[in-house]
Computed example of a mutant assay.
Amino acid sequence: MGTSGTAGTAETAGTIYVVTGSATAPTAMASYDAALADANIHNYNLVAVSSVIPADATVEPVDTAPDLGPAGNRLTVVEARATTREEETVSAGLGWTTGEGAGLFYEASGTDPEAVEETVRAGLDAGRDLREWTFDDEQVVVTTADCDGDGYTTVLTIAAYGRSEPIL
């Protein structure tokens, strides 16, 4: 749960973990925190970056994040997130494309999971068009939940860049 500092160092170096979470709670922030807990990244201070995957990184989708360091540390992420209080479906999608060098993440959110996936794929296409890099792989993960209107529901799909780092 992000509380020890040494476990997992070798296997997390150079790995970007794609995790998902969803939760319902009485406030929007509480549902976000609970969704982060569902993904096991709730004990970190998240720092969002735009979307470039370093050339030497491995992207690995997992059910929940492994131990990425002590609680309170800074964790670099690319985040797709959506919160609603309405009786509706909510989705957060994250896609990535990689190849011989650097790669890209794109994210989107909305109420229609298929439209979210289409938006992510269109973003990846546009990002590839801007670069003269070689891309040979593409994956998309969309997290979806139904909100019953009793509280707030948050869904998220997050790419967590390796181990956390001290914030102080």
Rank of each mutant, 00 (worst) to 15 (best):
C147S: 15
N43S: 13
Y106S: 08
G93Y: 00
D63I: 03
D63S: 09
S164D: 06
L36S: 02
D125F: 00
T111E: 14
T15P: 03
L68K: 01
D33T: 11
G5M: 02
R131L: 07
E87R: 15
W96K: 04
S91M: 07
E118C: 03
V78A: 04
T3S: 10
A37W: 02
R121K: 15
D56R: 12
I41R: 00
T111H: 13
I53R: 01
R128P: 00
P70K: 12
T20A: 05
L104Y: 01
V52G: 00
T76L: 13
G123T: 05
T12L: 02
A39P: 02
A30Y: 06
A34V: 11
N43M: 10
A122L: 09
S51D: 13
S4M: 07
R128V: 04
V120I: 13
E107L: 04
D150K: 14
D38Q: 06
A65Q: 08
D129M: 01
G72V: 14
T20N: 10
D150C: 12
V116A: 06
L124D: 03
S22H: 15
L104E: 03
D150Q: 15
A57Q: 08
D63V: 10
T24K: 13
A25W: 10
G162Q: 02
A145E: 08
L36F: 02
A71E: 14
T84N: 12
S4H: 07
L156F: 01
A13W: 04
Y17S: 02
T134C: 10
I53M: 07
S91P: 01
L124K: 04
A55Q: 14
G5Q: 05
L75R: 01
E132N: 13
A126P: 03
V78W: 01
L130F: 00
V47R: 11
G162M: 00
G8D: 01
L156S: 01
T153K: 09
T83V: 14
A13E: 15
G95L: 00
A80R: 03
V141T: 15
T119Q: 15
